[in-house]
């Protein structure tokens, strides 16, 4: 593999990394507040569907349609995640069951809505998604400029900004301290006058918003329309990134980049002499294979929030 090829891989790797990072950060908020959110996959699907639909519908009237699409995806994810919040916080449902239900629902719901709006099982193709951009000045930095600032999707900058913002909120503000306390020991938080239900709602809704945004980012950068397989497991890869990144925003950034590159590798493998002899399908399974390997290797040792997945009942002592 030449250095030139590596440089070429960057835009594609970053394109795939952005939605993973955003969605995994969503998972971080949810799990830090104590709610396991395996519905990220479904949330991404809803976000992706909404993002694509809004873009298609607004395309003729505004050049910024794709950006409205991102916002719409964020909003749709947030609204969709309310289902998970109500089920797992108020109704005290098993969080994994509730998440699975949402994942199944998302597939049916989005295809159903496609049928109503577009009379087919997918959205119409949009002519322009989010456009690649070159950052002035920064792009002139040797090598680094080429990697990060020339012809890249701006979504990666949004993702990195989200990482910094998440770190700040989670580790520096009272809100973050309280949210983490709810994920570690909700009874302790409650005894200090913190409303555990409200903190957990916050965590789940933020995860919905970020997951929805992640889904919209994915469809509007890597695809031309929303179909049932647009997300194809990226929500679960995000979840793996969260574990792999040890529930830390910077860890999530690293894990997201790792999965982004492993996806990009599948596009370039045929040009790498050593790998070219392997069948192309092999590289399509690579991200998923790495997900399993990462989860198996880290599952035992990872230190997630202690009370994540635990049903909290204020009446119980």
């Amino acid at each position: 593999m030449t250095f030139e090829m590596l440089l070429q891989m960057f835009p594609i790797a970053l394109m795939f990394a952005a939605p993973i990072i955003l969605t995994a950060l969503g998972g971080l908020f949810s799990e830090r507040s104590g709610i396991v959110n395996i519905a990220l996959e479904g949330i991404m699907m809803v976000g992706a569907f909404t993002g694509a639909t809004v873009t298609v519908l607004l395309e003729e009237s505004t050049p910024a349609a794709a950006w409205y699409g991102l916002l719409a995806g964020l909003a749709a994810g947030l609204v969709f995640s309310i289902l998970h919040a109500v089920a797992s916080i108020n109704l005290k449902a098993d969080q994994v069951i509730s998440g699975t239900a949402l994942n199944i629902l998302a597939g049916g719901l989005t295809v159903y809505l496609c049928q109503i709006i577009f009379h087919q099982q997918r959205t119409r193709a949009f002519s322009n998604g989010i456009q690649k951009m070159t950052v002035p000045l920064l792009s002139r930095i040797p090598v680094l400029g080429r990697m990060l600032f020339i012809e890249n999707y701006p979504t990666i900058y949004i993702a990195v900004a989200a990482v910094l913002l998440t770190w700040f909120v989670v580790y520096k503000t009272p809100l973050g301290l309280r949210m983490r306390a709810c994920g570690e020991h909700p009874q302790a938080a409650a005894s200090m006058g913190i409303n555990v239900y409200r903190m957990r709602y916050f965590g789940v809704l933020v995860s919905g918003a970020l997951g929805g945004l992640g889904g919209a980012v994915m469809v509007l950068t890597a695809d031309i329309q929303y179909t049932l397989v647009s997300i194809h497991g990226t929500g679960f890869i995000s979840l793996a990134s969260l574990v792999f990144g040890k529930w830390n925003p910077f860890g999530v950034l690293g894990a997201g980049l790792f999965f982004g590159f492993s996806t990009a590798l599948s596009f370039y493998a045929k040009d790498i002499p050593l790998l070219a002899s392997l069948p192309g399908e092999f590289f399509y399974i690579l991200p998923y294979l790495l997900t399993i390997v990462a989860l198996v290797a880290f599952a035992g040792k990872s230190v997630g929030p202690k009370a994540a997945g635990e049903i909290y009942d204020s009446g119980k002592r």
Binding site: L177, R180, E184, H185, A188, A189
Partner: peptide, 23 residues
């Protein structure tokens, strides 16, 4: 009712944190 991976101070001020701006 203590959060095991918080510091002593974090546990004590939880819910009534002294602030400097948003921090």
């Amino acid at each position: 009712k203590l959060v095991h991976n918080f510091t002593v101070t974090e546990n004590i001020v939880l819910g009534m944190e002294p602030r400097k701006g948003p921090i």
